[in-house]
Design a binder for these strands. Structure first.
Length: 486
DNA sequence: CTATGGCACGGATT
DNA sequence: AATCCGTGCCATAG
């Protein structure tokens, strides 16, 4: 049990406090913004202090501390990341200046999270027949919050007096822009488009298409045995497929990101989570050199610092008698919120500091270098309950120095590095290698997994068993990068 | 006999 | 407490 900090408030409210800390911790930056905004609106004791920028690097800072990047000690160890809380989303100003120069080229991460239509439009502009612009505009403004097409295609066609297939063409163009699958009429179609795009650069389980096309119903309900019999495969295999799909595809393109998807959350949750909005941004202090400390910015989606309005604290003494109770409780709630917020940030900062040290290689060099770390181990180190880590990790996404945005949970993926290693081995193999042989090769790279597991990963990646693979003399070279910055 | 896939158990995660 | 994931054991295919 963590005794955390003893708060010197006369009313500690420990249970309420703990409960709220938990909730706040599990909120992503976007959700947190809503929460704070509503608190600000309803509680006069809260006050949003103006944002403060570091005079040198223009980072937006939270609280009163000096800019941790610019005021760092000269002698800073390379493996010692600089971790701090930063107060608004547009870190992009200093990490990527390209964006402002060429707005046509959509760099996904730099998008304003509130402007999905414009973001997509910029990407497709070069390929879009100017005559179709109104169509595209119409489509993009009719998107639902999830990024699906809210109105029937026929309606759009009728409205503009154009043939249906022309609308279809525009939609198809839009679907292939980031976030892939937007403007699909249904989650199902969004998945299909994503799968198609994914298949260009990766191998995908061949049955995934059929699973989505025909087994969507089972898929969304986790009815794996039914799905299995539909596809003519075992339940376990069906689960593999489903796993692949949930892991790599997103039925609601405008939602968070590749990764965690809620098939079940069909309930009208006002989840306004914008697409690709990182909760944490990791960059290199000096992006030129290889040996450079990491800079980790934990996002607070507000421009400024939240605090208790000191005037309110004063005023409460002379409150009109009928209001004292109300004001008191306002003040109480406000302090609670602020404290919890601080604690949330504190926890995340500690978490990220430890995590970035352990996963430095992964952050810099990609999937193959991911260290297997369990949440449990980390929770022990940080002396918090494991569910705390779990909550903190599962809802958030991180932007890596290479610009990719991934779920923070990926930092704990126990199999990713092995899977990429297996893919590499098979890419390079001359003759088909059996699982056992692959297993041995993995051992040489210090990856110790059971032979059985190799088989699983292989099928997970949609790679056929050895006896069904072709001898690989001139297999296509793996020069495809997933998303070149164009 | 070897290579793989199915099933089930136990630890990790949520 | 329910679910997911890596593994061991066994059956089956070649």
């Amino acid at each position: 049990m963590l005794t955390q900090r003893q708060f010197h408030e006369h009313r500690p409210l420990t249970t309420a406090h703990l409960a709220q800390t938990m909730t706040l911790l599990s909120l992503s930056a976007i959700e947190l913004r809503q929460k704070i905004e509503s608190a600000l609106a309803s509680n006069p004791a809260l006050e949003l202090l103006e944002e403060r920028r570091c005079p040198t690097c223009l980072r937006r800072l939270s609280g009163n501390a000096p800019c941790p990047v610019c005021s760092r000690p000269q002698t800073i160890a390379v493996d010692q990341p600089i971790v701090f809380v930063s107060s608004r989303e547009d870190f992009q100003t200093h990490t990527s200046t390209r964006e402002t120069e060429t707005p046509e080229v959509g760099v996904p991460i730099a998008a304003n999270p509130d402007d999905l239509p414009g973001f997509v439009l910029r990407q497709i502009a070069p390929e879009l027949d100017p005559a179709d612009r109104p169509l595209a505009a119409h489509i993009l403004t009719s998107l639902s919050e999830d990024g699906l097409l809210g109105v029937p295609m026929a309606e759009i066609a009728r409205y503009h007096h154009v043939p249906l297939d022309r609308v279809q063409n525009v939609i198809s163009l839009i679907q292939h822009a980031e976030p892939v699958g937007v403007a699909s009429p249904s989650p199902q179609e969004a998945l299909l488009v994503q799968l198609e795009v994914l298949a260009e650069n990766h191998s995908v389980p061949p049955l995934a298409y059929k699973a989505i096309r025909e087994g969507m119903d089972f898929l969304s309900r986790h009815r794996y045995n039914e799905l299995g019999s539909l596809l003519g495969i075992s339940t376990a295999q069906a689960r593999e497929i489903a796993r692949f799909i949930t892991k790599n595809l997103n039925p609601f393109p405008a939602r968070a990101h590749w990764g965690d998807i809620n098939y079940t959350s069909q309930k009208a949750e006002p989840n306004t989570q914008a697409y690709s909005y990182p909760d944490v941004v990791i960059s290199k202090l000096n992006s030129e050199t290889e040996e450079s400390p990491l800079v980790v910015e934990v996002a607070i989606p507000l421009s400024g610092t939240l605090r208790i309005n000191p005037l309110f604290r004063e005023a409460i003494r002379q409150a009109p008698p009928d209001k004292t109770e109300q004001w008191k409780s306002d003040l109480e709630q406000a302090t609670l919120l602020v404290k919890c917020l601080q604690q949330r940030n504190h926890t995340i900062v500690r978490l990220m500091r430890r995590l970035t040290v352990m996963q430095r290689q992964f952050i810099l060099h990609g999937d193959a270098y991911l260290q297997p770390v369990t949440r449990a181990a980390l929770s022990k180190e940080l002396e918090v309950h494991e569910s705390t880590i779990s909550r903190a990790v599962s809802t958030k996404s991180v932007q890596l120095p290479n610009g990719h945005i991934i779920p923070l949970a990926n930092f704990f993926d126990r199999s990713l590095h092995i899977r990429t290693a297996i893919k590499e081995i098979i890419e390079k193999e001359k003759e088909p290698l059996s699982d056992t042989q692959i297993c041995k090769l993995l051992e040489k790279r210090d990856y110790f997994v059971a032979r059985r597991t190799v088989a699983k990963y292989r099928s997970m990646e949609g790679i056929l068993p050895a006896h069904l693979r072709k001898p690989n003399h001139n297999r296509r070279n793996r020069t495809h990068k997933t998303s070149q910055t164009l």
